[in-house]
Structures are given as structure tokens and as C-alpha cells.
């Protein structure tokens, strides 16, 4: 399956990251899970951005999902959540592209204080729909192929991104941004993943 679930622009502040704009495609999840899945995707995006050095790219694999993150030197960050088949190269070029556009549209001095409601950047949902087919994006990746020298660091699980001594379970438990419902959802997902799945 080739599918993009979410695109997000974040700002990496001193202690924590804030979401500036995000778009989600959660059609493939069951109706009752969607709100939890969305909360969770936002939570993970923030967590990973906070743990990524400025001016670097990472690809994090977790189960059947893949999270691509790029934090620019000026602390603007982009996240793309897809499944494993979505080509990394295409994903990172797409992130570069929408971050450039975002930076051109929204002045940098607004970034630290802004939030999702105050920012006017309506193109993310369009991109999300258009680049469900990575071949669409390929035309643009060919140009960028040799432009970008930043190496993509690949991680096989989210554990590798977390700092020493940190556990995802604890982070989820402590988080204020997740509702009770989402925490219960996370626990159940944990349990079902651990048993055999054909």
C-alpha cells in the first residue's frame, strides 16, 4: 500500500515543539479510532521533532508506519507520516518543498508564537491528496535529487530516536495532549500488536 496519512509543519522551540499547520487523511482508520489516531500522530510528530537536531533529516520506522522528519537550520520542521512503501526520497523532497513555501508565506518572526488557528497556509490538504501517488511527486524529485546533500538518518524503531532512559509508554502516560480515550487506545494497540497477526 502506498499512502500518506499526515503532513505537518512544526516549530522546534527551546523546550518543546508546536504544530503550526497539519493535514490528515484518516479515511482508512475506523470511525471510532480517527480522533485518537490523529491525536497520536500529532503527539509522535512533536516528540520526534523535539529529538531531532536542527539541519538534519530522519526516517523513523514503527510497525507498518514510517515517519519522515526534516528540521531546518532555522528550526522550522516538517513531518510526513506514511506507510512503509512510500519512497523516502520522494517524501523528503516533498517536505523540503512545502517548508520552503511555508517560509515564503509566513514570516519567521511569527513562528515561535503562532499556532494552528492563526496561520494561513491552506495548501497542505491539497498536497496530501495530490501526493498519495508518489509518481506525481517524482517529476519534482528528479530536479532536487542532487540539490540536497543532507543525509537521511534511518531508524528502525521509534526507540532509537528517544533519548537514553526514555520510554514511549512513559511519554504517553505523562502527556497532557492525549485524552484518556487515546491513552486507552494506545494500550490496546500495544497489546494487539504483540500477539500474532496474520
Amino acid at each position: 500500500m502506498v499512502r500518506v496519512y499526515a503532513l505537518a509543519v512544526l516549530y522546534k522551540g527551546v523546550n518543546s515543539a508546536t504544530v503550526l499547520k497539519a493535514a490528515y487523511d484518516l479515511q482508512s482508520f475506523s470511525f471510532f479510532q480517527r480522533s485518537s489516531v490523529q491525536e497520536f500522530m500529532t503527539f509522535i510528530s512533536k516528540t520526534v521533532v523535539e529529538r531531532t537536531q536542527p539541519a538534519s533529516r530522519q526516517s523513523v520506522k514503527e510497525g507498518e508506519y514510517m515517519l519522515q522528519v526534516y528540521v531546518r537550520a532555522d528550526n522550522l520542521a516538517g513531518v510526513l507520516i506514511s506507510d512503509q512503501e512510500y519512497p523516502n526520497r520522494v517524501a523528503h523532497t516533498l517536505i523540503t518543498k512545502f517548508l520552503d513555501e511555508f517560509a515564503a508565506k509566513v514570516p519567521p518572526n511569527n513562528w515561535p508564537t503562532a499556532n494552528e488557528t492563526t496561520i494561513d497556509f491552506p495548501v497542505l490538504p491539497q498536497y496530501l491528496a495530490k501526493y498519495q501517488n508518489p509518481k506525481e511527486a517524482d517529476a519534482l524529485t528528479k530536479i532536487q535529487n542532487d540539490l540536497d546533500e543532507t543525509k537521511i538518518i534511518l531508524h528502525d524503531t521509534i526507540k532509537a530516536v528517544l533519548e537514553r532512559g526514555e520510554k514511549l509508554d512513559d511519554l504517553v502516560e505523562k502527556s497532557d495532549s492525549l485524552t484518556m480515550h487515546s491513552k486507552a487506545f494506545y494500550k490496546t494497540a500495544r497489546k494487539t500488536n504483540s500477539c500474532c497477526n496474520f
Binding site: F31, F32, H181, A184
Partner: peptide, 21 residues
């Protein structure tokens, strides 16, 4: 779908019917 909910803290019916689900 079965909706994950650890305890019945709201004392409501556990049968949900929303947007044709």
C-alpha cells in the same frame, strides 16, 4: 468497531451509534 475504554466512568450505555457506525 470495539472502542477501547478501560472503565465505565461515565455511566452511559456502552453502545455507540454515530454517523452510521
Amino acid at each position: 468497531d470495539v472502542v477501547p475504554m478501560d472503565i465505565n466512568f461515565q455511566n452511559k450505555s456502552p453502545v455507540l451509534h454515530l454517523e452510521n457506525c
